[in-house]
């Protein structure tokens, strides 16, 4: 599988699976300490502490139900919309506590964008899908500004050439991979600082997956990216750091190379060699 992907990607002319390590120089963008989540009486997550470095991709891996998606949704307060969900601990964005009473979750979500497992374009045109965010945040004044934003976002998401002639067609009419890139373009149109991705490739075929992975590697230049993935190959290809979750706990977190070559915990080793999960 990995070799297949290598071939596939080298055809695309990208070398993004050669992981660079920029961690030591980067600053902490997001900071999580002792984060726990309870759904009613049910404890979904406990004592998770991770530093998210700027301009890095960090992968959250682990078996289904281990709490990695729950953790991801804590980072932009998406869990607020779930009835009976309680988040404890501390999460700071650039040093500012995002769960303090003074913080507006709407502002947090504008700064921390999110891409979901299933592509969820709005039932509007491609153009309007991109403009949605800038419009609610009042980021542009004229039609020309919006045109620029649309072109910039779609180009950044590698979708511009494919859709530039049909911007007024519905976003739901695109293929799955295109829809997912549209959702990424929609997320970056509001210029977030962090992008959270919740298994963004799980509904896509290998070619669409390769395109998105390539895109993630490019986006790292401008954004801090956190990605939940079930594919360990994907984690290895695109991330600089990896965090392994198991049964609601963070088992270990470190450089991707280290996690996959010399894991510190036997549960991690068992998972990446395919014995659990």
């Amino acid at each position: 599988m990995k070799n297949e992907m290598n071939e596939l990607c080298s055809v695309e002319g990208a070398e993004y699976f050669e992981v660079e390590d920029r961690a030591p120089l980067a600053e902490v963008k997001l900071f999580a300490r002792d984060v726990g989540v309870k759904y009613g009486e049910n404890e979904a997550l406990k004592n998770v502490s991770i530093d998210f470095m700027e301009h890095q991709v960090i992968s959250l891996i682990g078996p289904s139900g281990c709490g990695k998606s729950t953790f991801l949704r804590c980072l932009n307060r998406m869990n607020d919309t779930i009835e009976g969900c309680r988040v404890t601990g501390e999460i700071r964005l650039d040093g500012k506590d995002i769960y303090s009473k003074a913080t507006d979750p709407v502002e947090i979500r504008a700064r921390i964008g999110m891409v979901f497992q299933k592509p969820n374009p709005f039932p509007k045109s491609i153009y309007e899908n991109i403009c949605y965010g800038p419009r609610i945040h009042g980021m542009a004044n004229s039609k020309a500004d919006y045109d620029d934003i649309v072109e910039w976002s779609l180009t950044s998401a590698g979708l511009w050439d494919e859709v530039k002639d049909r911007l007024n067609e519905p976003g739901t009419g695109l293929s799955g991979g295109q829809q997912q890139r549209l959702c990424i373009a929609r997320a970056i149109a509001v210029h977030p600082e962090v992008i959270l991705m919740d298994e963004p490739c799980s509904a896509l075929d290998p070619i669409a997956t390769a395109k998105i992975e390539e895109l993630i590697d490019e986006l790292r230049e401008r954004f801090t990216i956190t990605i939940v993935t079930h594919s360990m190959q994907q984690a290895a290809r695109i991330s600089q750091s990896t965090a392994f979750f198991h049964l609601g706990e963070l088992v270990e977190e470190g450089k991707t190379d280290d996690i996959f070559t010399k894991p510190g915990d036997e549960r991690t080793e068992a998972y990446i060699t395919g014995r659990i999960g």
């Binding site: 919309t81 299933k118 709005f122 965010g133 997320a187």
Partner: peptide, 12 residues
């Protein structure tokens, strides 16, 4: 998922 998408972009 549509609501989530909108919330995730910082809409009220």
């Amino acid at each position: 998922s549509l609501r989530d998408g909108a919330y995730a972009m910082g809409s009220t």
